[in-house]
Design a protein around this nucleic acid. Structure first.
Lengths: 253, 253
DNA sequence: GCATGTGCCTAACATATGTTAGGTTCAATG
DNA sequence: CATTGAACCTAACATATGTTAGGCACATGC
């Protein structure tokens, strides 16, 4: 469902890797930096949907980078309930932190067919010798943290309609930032259950809300393709403000 | 209520600063490192409860470190609702990230009377020249991120009773880690409204749950002092597992 | 010593969301 | 072509939590 074989052939819309596209929005990179970063995305591993990338408790000697497709960071509760704490899209590191924290405190799974780069820690260490790249990696990590805060607000203080709307806005901006969305339209290959697991809702209720959004002519969502018909209203009703993604100040620095 | 004048006189139980106590659980520090870090906590600013530490949109040239008392990281919604995304206790940096992200995407307020150190960015830059300290700061940042993930799970997938229990366990371990808790007892100077703002609940419902916890003989909570009578049960019912705080592997480096 | 405010507590009632159950569609598979 | 399974969709009913309203206790300040 998620990715046609054709789209697997062309790893990303933009010219460079999604990682480079993303980091260039905040850091001035040299050609040399760019090609070193691009090289990380060479030779990714092909994975099917619902495959484990890394599991809680593991201490890998390499880190993972999304090159294509979607994945989710999640935790399981004793009763089997799942809470997704992040959606990972192309250009996102899965577990940059594990080098310092030692052991994973959560798991990661692909959601769609995906391409994931396995990068030895030594390569990361070499890259972070370059101050510009080190700073860009810091930035990416801190934005991930800002997204977590936004999710807490979303789950804690917004009702289901607002929360789903907010998530759609966030994913739109993030996808556009790696060249995978345009014209208020992008691939959102999540099941209603996965959306619910991210927002603390049941699939039944996610369905109710999506029906209402369609009836309101806010969005279309069909076979993994989301089209936002009234982005202004989606933003307004959910109180979305992209400042926490920290991609606006592209001009400075 | 929060802090007696007497306790203001003795900034922390342990011998060093709370920051040193915390970082030493994960990093081998030299005497030199220790005293450099301790010096950060010298001359903190005294603040009353409910005072703004930093506001959304600000771009400070210094960063803030909690030396004593409690603060909260929060976001306000258009309708005035507040979501707290973190409780800050002694030893916690408030905004280490603002150096790289440029602008605050949320606000921070004291909750109790507090002592907050104002540290010029240059001092931080100098400290992170030392690899051990740089790594320890990284660790602290990444643990903050892990706590955010745990909160998402808490708010998204646990009911009010479990969520409050989980938060009490987390704060117990964190307070103990800076020498401010012992014997399942610590100062928890939060109003029921503040607890609710952290967990996405109303104060009325927080009250209901606390009453039930007292009736069950799980805890006592009176005038800002929490005593956990049955820590095992509190852990078990909330599914608490301290692994995400990453303070267990103290033995290894 | 009275007034004021803040936090705590309780009760009656309202509602968003969960639960259970089952039907429909459609792509994948043998 | 029939079968299977996943995802989607819907409905009736259950419940955890929110809302509104007000009383109580205690500390603070005049």
């Amino acid at each position: 469902m998620s990715l046609s074989p054709a789209s697997i052939e062309r790893p990303h819309c933009g010219s460079g890797s999604p990682l480079v596209t993303k980091l260039e929005t905040v850091a001035k990179l040299t050609d040399d930096d760019r090609s070193a970063l691009s090289a990380l995305c060479d030779d990714p591993r092909e994975m099917g949907p619902r495959r484990s990338v890394i599991r809680e408790g593991e201490r890998p000697d390499h880190i993972h980078l999304m090159v294509e497709g979607w994945a989710a960071r999640y935790k399981l509760l004793p009763d089997g309930a799942r809470q997704i704490t992040a959606f990972l899209i192309p250009g996102d590191f899965c577990d940059l932190h594990v080098t310092i924290l030692g052991e994973m405190d959560h798991s990661i799974t692909t959601l769609t067919r995906a391409r994931v780069a396995y990068i030895p820690r030594s390569k990361i260490d070499a890259l972070t010798e370059r101050p510009r790249i080190a700073k860009a990696f810091w930035w990416a990590t801190l934005v991930d943290e800002a997204v977590l805060r936004a999710w807490i607000v979303n789950i804690g203080r917004r009702d289901a309609f607002e929360a789903i709307a907010h998530l759609m806005c966030e994913l739109y901006v993030r996808m556009r930032n790696v060249g995978l969305a345009d014209d208020h339209c992008y691939e959102l290959p999540l099941t209603q259950e996965e959306l619910g697991d991210a927002l603390g809702l049941t699939p039944v209720h996610v369905n109710r809300v999506l029906q209402r959004m369609r009836a309101d002519d806010l969005i279309s969502l069909k076979s993994g393709q989301l089209t936002i018909h009234d982005y202004r209203r989606l933003e307004a009703t959910s109180g979305f403000n992209a400042n926490y993604l920290h991609i606006a100040q592209r001009a400075e620095n």
